[in-house]
Nucleic acid binder design. Structure first.
Lengths: 149, 149
DNA sequence: TATTGTTATACTCTATAACTATA
DNA sequence: TATAGTTATAGAGTATAACAATA
């Protein structure tokens, strides 16, 4: 978007992002993890341990829903509950080694599929996408991993 | 990715896309539509009427799940069932005006939030993102709107 | 008394299996 | 007999409301 962004620019941006979102959703490896479960694990991987209530608001689900999700992740060995020595009410959640392994596997599967698609683009398109990645990272930084709307 | 893409390039691509995916998911307007419902409506908007079974495989859900989803969309006036004169077994699904209106509303809401974020980037980052959109569109074209994995 | 998390209950969405109707 | 879709039933995931424990 140029310094003076037009409605047409904004619409184009949203539509392209919508299609990209759909593509990435369809590139999702398996149904072994729900979208929220995978996203929660990624947040823990990227940002370290967090309180249960912070995770709930980060993922846009209620506290009871996160309680259940964390219980599921714990039961399957992907994450673990810890206590906060400073406040007995707090539950701190951390990713477990099995969780990191699973994320790595899923990432590799998706990387392969994406690479196959990218290989079909011409050099200019590939270069344009790779050139935009740092900007995307900064866009995501602005929003924050625990960001709300 | 350069013509010769490295593992590091692929990992960077996937990680950036993962964060972008998370951002777009959190930018999602409301819970008025499930992710699959919204995606199905968008597919119908972009690509016109489709058979129920095609929609099911496009969205990666079973035929019974799509039967129920279409019933919900029909009950809420967002889509409608049509018959195929050439084959009495077939159900053709089309988006209704209310469905188009809803997609437009959601798109506007998301466009506003995205524009606010984009406004915080510097000119070079904004330009890099806008320059990559056509390449993203072609990437999505390669996969196809009804594409499988 | 306020905050953090859990339990109880109900609803939405999805899957698998069995069925109906048309080809 | 095969295909397109539906109905029946069960399970996962979520929300709201009520509760327990700690601050």
């Amino acid at each position: 978007m140029a310094p003076t962004s037009t409605d047409a620019d904004q619409l184009q941006l949203v539509k392209s992002f919508e299609r990209l979102f759909a593509l990435l959703r369809r590139l999702n490896p398996q149904q072994d993890l729900s979208l929220t479960a995978a996203s929660t694990l990624r947040t823990l991987e990227r940002c370290g341990p967090h309180r249960l209530s912070d995770l709930a608001s980060a993922e846009g689900v209620t506290q009871p829903a996160m309680t259940q999700l964390v219980s599921r992740l714990e039961r399957t060995g992907l994450a673990e509950r810890q206590t906060d020595p400073a406040d007995g009410r707090v539950v701190v959640v951390d990713i477990a080694d099995a969780g990191r392994d699973l994320l790595r596997q899923r990432r590799e599967a998706r990387a392969g599929k994406l690479a196959a698609l990218m290989a079909e683009l011409d050099d200019a398109d590939r270069a344009a996408i790779m050139a935009a990645l740092p900007a995307f990272d900064r866009l995501a930084d602005l929003f924050g991993d625990l960001g709300q709307i």
